[in-house]
Amino acid sequence: MIVFVRFNSSHGFPVEVDSDTSIFQLKEVVAKRQGVPADQLRVIFAGKELRNDWTVQNCDLDQQSIVHIVQRPWRKGQEMNATGGDDPRNAAGGCEREPQSLTRVDLSSSVLPGDSVGLAVILHTDSRKDSPPAGSPAGRSIYNSFYVYCKGPCQRVQPGKLRVQCSTCRQATLTLTQGPSCWDDVLIPNRMSGECQSPHCPGTSAEFFFKCGAHPTSDKETSVALHLIATNSRNITCITCTDVRSPVLVFQCNSRHVICLDCFHLYCVTRLNDRQFVHDPQLGYSLPCVAGCPNSLIKELHHFRILGEEQYNRYQQYGAEECVLQMGGVLCPRPGCGAGLLPEPDQRKVTCEGGNGLGCGFAFCRECKEAYHEGECSAVFEASGTTTQAYRVDERAAEQARWEAASKETIKKTTKPCPRCHVPVEKNGGCMHMKCPQPQCRLEWCWNCGCEWNRVCMGDHWFDV
């Protein structure tokens, strides 16, 4: 396979590697080409510095992935760790964990309700045991953590790749202090920090972006993250068709209702045909949960890209028209025109101005929308079919299609509260000796007794199943 190397943020060049090629071997190839010592090179990928003893497969490097290699003399205490030698983080029983690669970060837990604080980093599902597709590297999971809308060759929703760059020099040479644990960490600028490894760059702020994971991409090709779309790892039924499908869209209502993408497309087109989208002054033209839940309008309007190009163009047109109407304007009634106009409040005669090729020149009556006339309008008909009709959803289907309910059931079956801080902690095999993952707590306690870890627990039921 081919990976592209950008040395000291210059133009990239291809390097041929195998899945079992080590990072140090990659350094040696680059060092020979650039005429520099291999031990002064640092390989940066997806916000993480890659260790010498890791392989291309370990690092989730795919065909035509772009890695950054910078030349920086080692500072005291760094060289041993980078070589894969006596790194205290690798000691058996050590409590410190390697910062998780962005290629394996899962933010789907952050669609849980606000009262489930902490689960994004504490609760991990076991539903990723799908067998890898044919042709994928051994052991590589097909679980997708992110979804994007690819405006490039795909023109559809695709699995996405999370990447990070330095907000100062805009190069992907920043190593994160810690990985993101929720969508806010990724979507809110300057929320996460790190250290830029580019020479002479003092940058410390992280800037995240997404790429389409279905095809090789260049540095400049980015895609918009659709953070309401998630892999259906909890096997929730769709609120409309009641099938279990994946991926799904999880509405931001209190129940976190789930809808499959085909039904979401149908829901949007139906509402669009009836012009029953909601115009929100802050958000724009949007839709609420299909069950009509309060405070559930979709905030990231790129989710409506699921409509496809033709329907999305209609959505944008109707949204612009609705904006004009909300501002007190009118639409030209001549067939084939429909231009938005903003006449004076007491102006009865409205002319669709033909300047700049935008208007048709038609003069019409503001009251009856017919060709302009003197005197009273002959008839004014009330528009028919403008009443909002509820999208029919079966109550039982709505009850079963809740992301929140599956989460709470998982928590109930696989977790116990920490005796000190009461945060839910998952036990997935292993011994009875637990350690609270909350940095402010870190209590060592017994899963069996529910009390602080002691010699009695150690001698009596340390390794009970």
Rank of each mutant, 00 (worst) to 15 (best):
5 V>N: 03
6 R>P: 05
6 R>A: 03
8 N>Q: 03
18 D>H: 11
19 S>P: 12
19 S>N: 11
27 K>Y: 01
42 R>D: 07
48 K>W: 00
51 R>P: 11
51 R>C: 09
54 W>G: 04
62 D>Q: 15
68 H>I: 02
82 A>D: 09
85 G>Y: 13
85 G>D: 14
93 G>M: 12
96 E>H: 10
98 E>Q: 11
102 L>N: 12
111 V>D: 13
114 G>T: 13
115 D>L: 05
127 S>G: 12
139 G>Y: 11
154 C>A: 01
158 Q>P: 00
159 P>H: 08
159 P>L: 06
164 V>E: 04
178 Q>T: 14
184 D>K: 08
186 V>N: 01
188 I>V: 11
189 P>L: 05
196 C>W: 01
198 S>K: 09
206 A>G: 08
209 F>T: 14
209 F>C: 07
220 K>S: 11
228 L>P: 00
232 N>K: 00
237 T>P: 15
241 C>L: 01
243 D>K: 12
260 C>P: 00
261 L>P: 02
266 L>A: 12
277 F>M: 08
280 D>L: 12
284 G>S: 04
284 G>T: 03
285 Y>V: 04
285 Y>K: 00
287 L>Y: 00
292 G>N: 09
302 H>P: 06
307 L>C: 12
309 E>N: 15
309 E>Y: 10
309 E>R: 14
310 E>W: 05
324 V>Q: 05
329 G>Y: 04
331 L>P: 03
338 G>Y: 08
338 G>P: 04
353 E>P: 05
354 G>I: 10
357 G>S: 10
360 C>L: 02
360 C>G: 03
365 C>I: 02
369 K>S: 07
370 E>Y: 04
375 G>A: 08
380 V>E: 07
382 E>Y: 11
382 E>R: 13
391 Y>C: 05
391 Y>R: 05
396 R>P: 11
397 A>Q: 09
398 A>M: 15
399 E>H: 11
401 A>G: 07
404 E>N: 12
409 E>K: 08
412 K>G: 10
413 K>G: 13
422 H>L: 08
422 H>D: 08
424 P>R: 07
425 V>D: 10
433 H>S: 04
439 P>I: 07
441 C>F: 01
443 L>N: 11
444 E>R: 06
447 W>I: 05
448 N>R: 05
450 G>A: 14
450 G>K: 02
452 E>N: 15
454 N>K: 06
462 W>E: 01
464 D>Y: 15
